[in-house]
Amino acid sequence: MSNLKGKRILIAKPGLDGHDIGAKIIALALRDAGAEVIYTGLRKTPGFIARVAVDEDVDAVGLSLLSGSHKELVAETMQELRKLDAGDIPVFVGGTIPAVDRAELMDAGVMAIFTAEMRLDDVVAEVARALTPVQAA
């Protein structure tokens, strides 16, 4: 199932929490679907993440968020991307996102939100769908 072949995806961890198992699992799942995955490591600022996304010219940025301040971090990262003329790079979010915040994030322009309960295959399939708008039947 190599439906992400040739796609470059940045998995980034803004915020202060020190857990990146989830981020690494997603990175490996995307790789196994054919993507070329860059991972930033822990505790990166939105500005840093945006610059890596631009230098690496990724097709999407996935933010892994476990700390409480997800709304701010997502908004700041998207803001930093826009500053670098990269507001067109889609951002998806994974982690512990309370249901009440999801609509707001989607309104802010997030491509997708993934939670820990979701099956990895479904996550990968949704990323692939979002990154390949024109698909043969």
Partner: peptide, 14 residues
């Protein structure tokens, strides 16, 4: 790159 899936973890920059 994996010769099978074409996927890769680009882990140098970290």
């Amino acid at each position: 790159s994996s010769p099978h899936t074409h996927g890769a973890i680009l882990g140098d920059r970290i």
